[in-house]
């Protein structure tokens, strides 16, 4: 169970606004986050991962305090065990598909399973520049899952996938993430996306 109560000022085009979130995410749950651009969806994910610091708030995961503004507690990103799928993928240009996963985990069998899951097992020696947009996005998802995170944060993770690939991947992800007990938070522009998978919603800008 991850409990989040945070507040952060955001600089928006039309002036300053305040991002306020008070939400609980159960183990193994899938939460869909949607709302207009600039409403703070990505910022929320970065706050949870420890990549951005809010002004106020408390984040507690399974009894461990990750962030407490009042007591000046801020657990480093490295110790939060969160997987993060970046909107622009953030793949490492110097690493092949295989090397991306080996950088994240030493578990060879898990790497093999991930490569099959993402249908990248024939492209292991390719660097990101030689992958299509969809392949890059799948690699970003696999890399985020490689550490078997307790919490998986995904920022528009299916935007570059064709409908067939998206459906197949989501079907497989459901099984794998449920098996790992990973809580998943998915940012999406599309309210219809993930219907039937997400168990709760967090709507911004309404």
């Amino acid at each position: 169970m991850i409990s989040i109560t945070i507040e952060k000022k955001l600089q928006a085009y039309h002036g300053q606004q305040v991002l306020q979130v008070d939400k609980q995410f159960a183990t193994g749950s899938v939460t869909k986050v949607y709302g207009p651009s600039g409403s703070g969806k990505t910022t929320l994910l970065k706050i949870i991962a420890g990549l951005t610091t809010p002004e106020k708030g408390l984040i507690v995961a399974d009894g461990v305090t990750w962030f407490n503004a009042a007591e000046k507690v801020n657990l480093p990103t490295q110790q939060r065990n969160t997987g993060f799928v970046f909107q622009q993928y953030a793949l490492f240009p110097n690493m092949t598909v295989q090397e991306h996963l080996e950088y994240a985990t030493a578990d060879k069998l898990w790497i093999k399973q991930l490569l099959q899951l993402g249908k990248l097992d024939t492209l292991t020696s390719h660097k990101p520049n030689y992958l299509s947009g969809g392949q890059q996005q799948r690699l970003a998802i696999l890399r985020a899952m490689a550490t078997k995170p307790g919490l998986l944060l995904m920022d528009e993770p299916f935007s570059a996938l064709d409908p067939k690939m998206k459906t197949e991947l989501i079907t497989e992800l459901k099984v794998v993430l449920a098996g790992l007990g990973t809580a998943t938070i998915i940012v999406s522009h599309n309210p219809q996306e993930l219907e039937g998978w997400a168990s709760q919603e967090l709507v911004f800008g309404e």
């Binding site: 990549l51 480093p76 990103t77 969160t82 970046f86 953030a90 793949l91 490492f92 550490t147």
Partner: peptide
């Protein structure tokens, strides 16, 4: 991009590991 180092941190890597394995090679 800042996200390269950030991605490395989310994989549990230290700043030194990130510098050595991600930033310098790129």
């Amino acid at each position: 991009p800042a996200s390269l180092a950030e991605a490395s941190y989310t994989l549990g890597k230290t700043e030194w590991q990130t510098f050595k394995s991600i930033l310098l090679p790129n």
